[in-house]
Nucleic acid binder design. Sequence first.
DNA 1: TTTATAGTTTTATGATTATCAAACAATACT
DNA 2: AGTATTGTTTGATAATCATAAAACTATAAA
Lengths: 97, 97
Amino acid sequence: MDIKQLNTDTEIKQRVFFALSDPGRYKIISMLYHVGHEMGCNELNQHVEIDKSTMSYHLRTLREIGITNTRTQGRQKYVSLNKEKIETLLPGLLKLL
Amino acid sequence: MDIKQLNTDTEIKQRVFFALSDPGRYKIISMLYHVGHEMGCNELNQHVEIDKSTMSYHLRTLREIGITNTRTQGRQKYVSLNKEKIETLLPGLLKLL
DNA sequence: TTTATAGTTTTATGATTATCAAACAATACT
DNA sequence: AGTATTGTTTGATAATCATAAAACTATAAA
């Protein structure tokens, strides 16, 4: 653990809680957790019914918090949950969703 | 568990996460949890440095979500955490704070 | 090369939020 | 009665947020 943390653990925790406070983001996170593997944004869109630009907006938020990973293949982007990070920061949280 | 829930568990969870997403509220909740007993608003104010009206505003939010209890004695108000409710809804969450 | 698909960014908009000063209500103290 | 204390409410303000349409980028397919 780094001593000099510009973002303290508490601040990151608060951002994770923020991520989970919105219905759309909650569904995204919950979905990614329960399916257990990465999903294409489009595939996600079919399960979480929100406009694609809103989806993109939320996915950026999650990416910036650092709780998702994104992989690009062709013109598809696959999103997955950074379970390790979440589990390290807030052990047991994911299974509560 | 009641079948007819105007506020689903998921909605309430999201509100709890919302409560924890603000630095002031996070401190209030964390403080109440760690001291383990009720605190006067004034006493809380000494530990969580925010304006008294802002404090009152946040405490109302927590009360409305239903995760705090308030007891009035004379001109003092004592706030405590509704641990049971939180623990039932999100077991293990509090110890992550 | 044209067209379709996947996703992002921009822009605009309305809603929600956090903050604090000021006024207020209620109780306790002198 | 007057004053101090404890906390709430109101009102104003600035900031952040969620949403969606439209324009855009990049890749794949025809």
